[in-house]
């Protein structure tokens, strides 16, 4: 189903009713999973991802080699580096898209996202504090509707914060696009913020991730053809979107922190009262 972009010029509204600079609804939670060191759940529109962080920990025995083999003795080779290794594992559930499409682990797109994510995070996390160890980030995509890489980066940031891994600042990501296709060669094309699946299929777009409140770009992925003249506008909109995302994530983390402090003080309070009664 081709996307009809002709209507944009009439009301300046996109297919899902947003204006050019509007984000979709972002809903995020941290500490969703009790067993993990850090975990998060993030929705950007209909894109839903879950992230679980384990580590920093001693690199486990090389998996997959003899499967069940090997006994209790841990340790083993690997992990000799001076910095922690960030291992990212993305599982795209078969039911995540409208038509079921099974992607194996060897899927090239998934592998590329994994390496992008692992490079981005390795640059931001203070991996030098954890030599000879491994930080395992496993991401599950439950539902996808565009801006997948951006959602994955945001979820991973939240989970790393929850895991208490020291990092320079938030890494927040967002997508940006342009209102008309490359072929249209339209000089007056407006940039768009936060593409959904339909827009992502048709229009040129890029994913940009920035560090905290600054304008420092830590990741930039553009896989589509776009006129060089439009790129600057897209980038500016994207970076601006990242700041908005940062605000939202910051609120989520602060709210969780407040909740935890509150819960902590409540416990303490009752404990003190009990003592008074005695």
């Amino acid at each position: 189903m081709p996307l009809d972009t002709s209507t944009y010029n009439l009301a300046l509204l996109r297919v899902d009713g947003r204006r050019w600079n509007e984000l979709r609804r972002i809903h995020a939670q941290i500490r969703t999973q009790a067993a993990a060191d850090g975990s998060s759940y993030l929705e950007m529109g209909h894109t839903k991802v879950m992230c679980v962080v384990t580590g920093p920990s001693e690199p486990g025995p090389r998996r997959g080699v003899a499967g069940a083999g090997g006994g209790g003795g841990g340790g083993g080779a690997g992990g000799q580096s001076k910095e922690a290794e960030v291992v990212v594992n993305i599982v795209i559930a078969g039911f995540s898209s409208v038509d079921r499409k099974r992607r194996g682990r060897g899927d090239k797109r998934t592998l590329e996202m994994q390496s992008t994510l692992s490079n981005t995070l390795a640059a931001t996390l203070h991996t030098h504090l954890f030599p000879h160890s491994q930080i395992n980030i496993s991401l599950h995509v439950l539902s996808q509707d565009g801006s997948l890489l951006a959602a994955l980066i945001n979820a991973a940031t939240l989970a790393c914060v929850d895991a208490g891994i020291p990092m320079t600042d938030y890494v927040t990501a967002c997508t940006a696009g342009s209102t008309s296709t490359y072929a249209a060669n339209d000089e007056g094309a407006d940039p768009l913020l936060d593409l959904n699946h339909q827009e992502e299929q048709e229009l040129p777009g890029l994913t940009v991730a920035t560090l905290g409140d600054s304008d420092k770009v830590v990741a930039l992925v553009c896989e589509s053809r776009v006129q060089i003249s439009r790129l600057e506008g897209m980038l500016a909109v994207g970076v601006d979107g990242c700041k908005q995302v940062r605000e939202i994530l910051d609120q989520v983390i602060k709210a969780q922190g407040q909740k935890m402090i509150l819960e902590g003080t409540v416990d303490k309070g009752t404990g003190l009262n009990d003592m008074d009664l005695d």
Binding site: A34, A35, H46, K48, A93, G94, F95, R100, H140, S143
Partner: peptide, 26 residues
């Protein structure tokens, strides 16, 4: 939990392990 599927469920055990199952039909 997942409106995009024909049926889905999520279970968390008290020890923190968690699983999600999605069913899709064609």
């Amino acid at each position: 939990i997942l409106p995009g599927t024909n049926g889905s469920a999520r279970i968390c055990f008290a020890d923190g392990t968690e699983a999600i199952v999605g069913v899709k039909a064609e």
